[in-house]
């Protein structure tokens, strides 16, 4: 029996005590594999695993399963995202088996943005199970080697189970309890929502550490570099569950428009430096939204390169 739950690179890195650095990649709105592979090149060697988003913001894209398989083929480690909005438990279990068969070893279990946000608001929303139960299901398939109906699985999918946490959604006081529930359900690692309000996040992590949650689970802090003040304004207004302090917008606006991207990256780098020292934080999840080409530079300047190799 392996000492690892999944044997994924991400699991090995975290277990060895390294500060993890994960990236993200949105699949194309089409079957443009060439474009996707181009984005992979910016991530390869610079991150430990790459999240492949699943119809993010409820906009239809190439499936996260196919995207994850392409990542694997190209020698990158996928973190296969799965939302509860689009599939019932049959489709979910089938895709988990399929993903494992194609080399996927990490999963991120999510509720999914409501379809009214996306480009097919007319769609039926499924939610046969919720994200908490998806975590429990992937764990059950791995540890008990059984389907939900208790039937045995012939070669069980051994996934490193991830979950999301948004410390900035309401009610705030309950967020840490919900995190605890996700860990109880079976989450091995957590990737948080993009953090911009550092003060609130420090407070959140203090509660997390006080409850000892960081000892039961690896917590990766979500970082998104702002491209400009416009992006910050947009996210503040339109992206649900985002907490973007006015000081950050002010800071971005305080420099010349051409310099705003650099200012955004500087803020992200400051965040990463702080996360390296913050008790309970095991790594950073870098979500460079449609800005993958800047990942090598950010990784370099954040002093997280070269990425450690663990066998």
């Amino acid at each position: 029996m392996s000492e690892f739950k999944s044997g994924s690179n991400l699991e090995k890195i975290l277990k060895a005590g390294h500060f993890a650095f994960t990236g993200e990649c949105g699949p194309p709105k089409g079957a443009n594999v060439a474009h996707l592979k181009e984005k992979f090149q910016y991530l390869k060697g610079n991150v430990d695993a790459v999240n492949m988003t699943d119809n993010q913001t409820a906009v239809v894209r190439m499936s996260s399963l196919a995207g994850s398989a392409l990542l694997f083929q190209e020698g990158l480690e996928p973190n296969f995202q799965m939302v509860c909005r689009d599939r019932n438990r049959l489709a979910m279990m089938a895709d988990i088996l399929g993903a494992y068969a194609l080399g996927v070893r990490n999963m991120l279990c999510l509720s999914g943005d409501h379809q009214t946000f996306g480009n097919h608001p007319q769609a039926k929303n499924v939610h046969c199970i919720d994200s908490m139960q998806l975590i429990a299901m992937v764990k059950k398939m791995r540890d008990e080697e059984k389907f939900l109906n208790e039937e045995d699985i012939d070669v069980a999918p051994k996934m490193f189970v991830g979950a999301a946490c948004n410390p900035f959604a309401d009610p705030y006081e309950y967020r840490v309890h919900r995190l605890a529930s996700k860990i109880d359900a079976g989450a091995d690692f957590i990737q948080t929502q993009c953090i911009f309000n550092m003060e609130k996040f420090r407070d959140f992590m203090k509660m997390t550490v006080d409850m000892g949650l960081h000892e039961k689970c690896y917590i990766l802090a979500g970082v998104t570099p702002m491209k400009n003040a416009g992006m910050a304004n947009f996210m503040k207004k339109f992206v649900p569950g985002m907490d973007i302090p006015d000081e950050l917008i002010k800071r971005l606006k305080s420099v010349d428009k051409k310099e705003q991207a650099e200012e955004g990256i500087k803020f992200a780098l400051e965040q990463i430096e702080e996360f390296k020292e913050m008790e309970g934080v095991a790594g950073v999840h870098l979500m460079a939204i449609e800005w993958e080409q800047r990942v090598p530079e950010i990784a370099e300047r954040a002093n997280v390169l070269p990425r450690p190799q663990v066998d």
Partner: peptide
Amino acid sequence: CAKSLLHGPCGGSSNGACEVN
């Protein structure tokens, strides 16, 4: 709940309002 969650609230909950509206 717009997502019929048994373990909410999801990350879209803001000031007591649903992310849908």
